[in-house]
Design a protein around this nucleic acid. Structure first.
Lengths: 194, 194
DNA sequence: CATTCAACCAAGCAAGCGCTAGTGTGAATG
DNA sequence: CATTCACACTAGCGCTTGCTTGGTTGAATG
């Protein structure tokens, strides 16, 4: 078994697992289902993963790492005004959420199935990501673009964004970018210094 | 087995089940665990419920019906300004969400475990509840209290509110009402006609 | 007093679960 | 040519799962 997510076989298995975990849920997805999807026998899975838990951890790790990379890229690429950074962050969030959808739905729904070991490791990744958000929100607050409590604002915004996986239709007319801009508009429109 | 949630034994079982489903998840909660919690044997459960699915449906039905009642009450009790109704609706939402927390967490997390029969029935309840929201949002839009697309605004708001079950600490300093008011303030503050 | 009935129990079945042990490949490596 | 290595297979163990069956209570009902 590999420590990293390096092997191509393992990467493909992780992708398939994410899909199955979304369709069936983690507990209802059996190792035999995943094996069949891959075209191998169930026992062979344990050459790539120590146990079923490790498959779940791999799925979530993949998604969260992607989110971090994309968010950092987006922030590095845009200009430094608070408004631009807020837009960039919201767009990046929805981009990962909706393209890498399976992994993120698993992260949102099956987080509690992680054992404490994996959870500790992945908490760090998630915290790093949320720190980016709080930074951007802080800047928006400082410029008077948004009002309210820093903690509450960031939770509300992330809630609104994460909830999209429940109703957003990729085949519909709205792009993720439009969605992100609408949300930012909703919380910043006509905000004047009180 | 009863068709209604009438029997006291069944009501108590539903309450205990909600608690277990939150702690362990639906799939990991065995009928033996629930039975032991109730102080009976596992086989006796099937006198009260046809199968395990029906227990899940009962939990979710209970929660959703409560939400509807509380929201309707709150709307009937407040004055008719768009602002008052928006505040009332947000407060009512958080009140149910955080007092009847177990049932709602189950509804949010384990909805997909329902079979299609139960899902059809419960969808109606949920739709009736969401219709209340869209009505209130419509009024807020008409008065220029909020801006944007009616569909998007209601999704964003419900997302922000539902997300609270993930981070809100009932032992903390903030009351649910304060939370609701903060959110309404965030999306309405200084909104001027464009 | 006979009957009914909700509520429970004891015992267990059939199916499915995660995972292991031991073995066999064909390709790359020294 | 010998060895290693990633990858896969067969076969099944030990356990848990949801649920069923047939029978037993104690209280209410007529």
């Amino acid at each position: 078994m590999n420590v990293m997510n390096a092997s191509p076989r393992r990467k493909e298995l992780t992708r398939l697992a994410a899909q199955l975990f979304v369709q069936e849920g983690f507990d209802r997805t059996t190792v035999r289902m995943l094996a069949q999807e891959m075209g191998i026998k169930s026992g062979s899975l344990f050459h790539h993963f120590r146990d079923k838990q490790e498959i779940l951890a791999a799925v979530i790790e993949e998604g969260t790492e992607n989110a971090l990379v994309i968010a950092r890229d987006a922030l590095a690429r845009c200009d430094s005004s608070a408004s631009a950074r807020l837009h960039a962050m919201a767009r990046a969030h929805l981009e990962t959420l909706l393209t890498d959808r399976n992994a993120h739905v698993v992260a949102l729904y099956e987080w509690r199935r992680l054992d404490s070991e994996a959870r500790a490791h992945l908490s760090h990744l998630r915290d790093a990501y949320e720190a980016l958000w709080e930074e951007v929100i802080d800047e928006a607050l400082a410029e008077g673009l948004v009002h309210g409590d820093r903690f509450l604002v960031s939770r509300f915004v992330m809630g609104a964004l994460n909830w999209t996986v429940r109703w957003y239709d990729p085949e519909g007319t709205r792009t993720p970018d439009e969605l992100a801009d609408e949300l930012v508009a909703m919380i910043t429109r006509s905000a004047s210094t009180p």
